[in-house]
């Protein structure tokens, strides 16, 4: 069942008002409505009439929406600066993934170097290090792109943004995540080199990963969007 101000909330979010301002507004409207109901009941009206009178006193949906939507200071960053959606959804996620790759590679190299007695000695690495580095690389190749994609989806849905830039961003992170190949071979003999390789290619197994990424990353967004935004359109 819809709460009294659910539609107002959707209307404000769609108008570009930031979710935190909408939440605060609806909270105070609900509390005000409680006070008005109590007052109307105290004046002798039965609960149904008291509720109707309280809602009427609070203002029409149009007035309540206009009072908030007419104030640009409450708009979300995406509504104030439409170009920011391109940066946040399409440019930032691949950069974040690259940054994580770079930080992991640097950490591994520094760790290995710090465990050599001399520059050409075999590093004395603890047993857990190989497993840890392999797990980190797997996390960054397989899990992190999906988490970044879900992050894009959450921001886009919370702010009820048009789907163009979020979809582009989800597709970019799915491709970038599938095509990025990072692997490590630790040195196992004195004077032997370890190997860290990074490449971008899409063939064979990466194509399957791309499909998997697309399903894991875009499907939740599309389903979520269908139920939340599509559901509101059907109700109005």
């Amino acid at each position: 069942m819809l709460k009294p101000f659910d539609r107002l909330g959707e209307r404000l979010l769609t108008a570009g008002i930031a979710p935190r301002h909408v939440r605060r507004y609806l909270t105070e409207l609900n509390e005000h409505l409680d006070d008005l109901r109590t007052e109307e009941k105290g004046a002798g009206h039965d609960p149904e009439i008291a509720n109707a009178r309280a809602l009427a006193r609070l203002g029409t949906a149009d007035d309540l929406a206009a009072a908030m939507a007419g104030r640009p200071e409450f708009r979300s960053w995406a509504a104030r600066e439409p170009w920011a959606a391109l940066v946040i959804f399409v440019i930032v996620p691949p950069l974040t993934l690259t940054l994580f790759f770079a930080m992991t590679v640097i950490s591994v190299v520094l760790f290995v170097q710090s465990h050599r007695a001399s520059p050409f000695a075999q590093p004395d690495l603890p047993g857990w290090f190989g497993l840890l580095s392999a797990t980190m690389f797997r996390f960054e190749s397989l899990v992190l792109p999906v988490l970044l994609g879900w992050g894009i989806a959450i921001v886009a849905i919370r702010q009820r943004l048009p789907s163009f830039w979020p979809i582009i961003g989800l597709a970019v992170i799915a491709v970038f995540g599938a095509a990025s190949q990072l692997s490590i071979t630790l040195p196992t003999a004195p004077a032997a080199h370890g190997e860290i390789s990074f490449g971008m290619y899409l063939h064979g197994a990466e194509i399957y990963r791309l499909f998997l990424n697309l399903i894991l990353i875009t499907a939740p967004y599309l389903v979520w969007r269908h139920f939340i935004i599509g559901g509101q359109s059907r109700q109005s």
């Binding site: 507004y25 409207l29 005000h32 006193r57 203002g59 009072a67 104030r71 409450f74």
Partner: peptide, 16 residues
């Protein structure tokens, strides 16, 4: 007299 709910955006703006 006001649509009572419209007071909140004014309060929020003053707070901001």
């Amino acid at each position: 007299t006001l649509g009572e709910g419209v007071v909140y955006p004014v309060l929020h703006a003053l707070e901001r």
